[in-house]
Design a protein around this nucleic acid. Structure first.
Lengths: 150, 150
DNA sequence: GTGTAATTGTTAATAATTAACAGTTGCGAA
DNA sequence: TTCGCAACTGTTAATTATTAACAATTACAC
């Protein structure tokens, strides 16, 4: 992350996306692929507006529809606290909830893998009779690099 | 929560709010108080629009300004995944991050107290060199009551 | 090949939030 | 006490973000 050879990273993501869409029997159309590529240019969170700027066809529905699709099939994460999107690093583990560390300076997103944190939350929920469907764990702050500069 | 004698609950909250504002030397003006009262009518998450409907003066800036104020002094929580607000049950513990269980049916919000879940998150963050400033932990699902009916 | 469903292109509406600015009020310092 | 500044209010209107609607096109199963 930031250390990755990003060319490979993006290529890898695209290959995976094709597999995922094939498996789900849904179409990875041109717009969808384009939005996906833009999102995967790096590991930063992009808003719909950011993405639209880079699209050839800048009409909002084009971008919004693609984003909705990508989110639904689990290829990108929606970061609700930023109203932004980021490529999902583990689309194969379908249905997992994202735990993200989000740098508010450079917007780089680090996704933590499912772990004890979520288990703890589930226990708490169960204890009070709550039936979870969806979890948002978003930690905003500064990544090590940006923290150093401040 | 739902079991509370809510009259008392709201009155209690108002008293606390006055204390908090006095301590911070900020003004608990009429609009701010009114928005706060509306939010405290129950333990449900309300959007800005919900609140505006109940305001005497329905002009958006009135409500938005009050909400911003209340959020800043920590008297209400902003629930980013719903774009809604709920009264904070523990304003005195300033700076704590909310962990909320949010029923998507009845919109009742249960706030968990700081606990091991957050510690776990902090550890994970530290491990990867991340410096947290703000944390959103929001679990959407069904409360026991609504789950029973479905 | 044909029919149906999904996707696209396009225009325009809606919703949500914020900007701007003039007027008023509260409050501390002279 | 009053002067002056900062905070707050009232109001209009702009901006931003998202979605609706619908006709045209394309992909794919039968």
């Amino acid at each position: 992350m930031g250390l990755c050879q990003h060319q490979d990273c993006q290529k890898e993501a695209l290959k995976l996306a094709e597999q995922v869409c094939a498996a789900l029997k849904v179409r990875f159309t041109e717009h969808r692929r384009r939005v996906f590529e833009i999102i995967w240019q790096n590991h930063k969170a992009l808003t719909a507006a950011d993405i639209m700027q880079e699209m050839e066809n800048k009409q909002p529905p084009i971008t919004y529809r693609a984003l909705e699709f990508l989110k639904d099939v689990g290829l990108v994460h929606y970061i609700v606290s930023l109203n932004a999107y980021v490529g999902c690093l583990h689309p194969k583990e379908g249905g997992h909830v994202g735990q993200m560390l989000i740098c508010t300076k450079c917007r780089t997103v680090t996704e933590l893998m499912p772990n004890s944190v979520l288990e703890g939350l589930d226990n708490e929920a169960h204890r009070v009779g709550f039936h979870p469907a969806q979890v948002h764990v978003e930690m905003l702050g500064l990544c090590d690099g940006c923290y150093g500069k401040a």
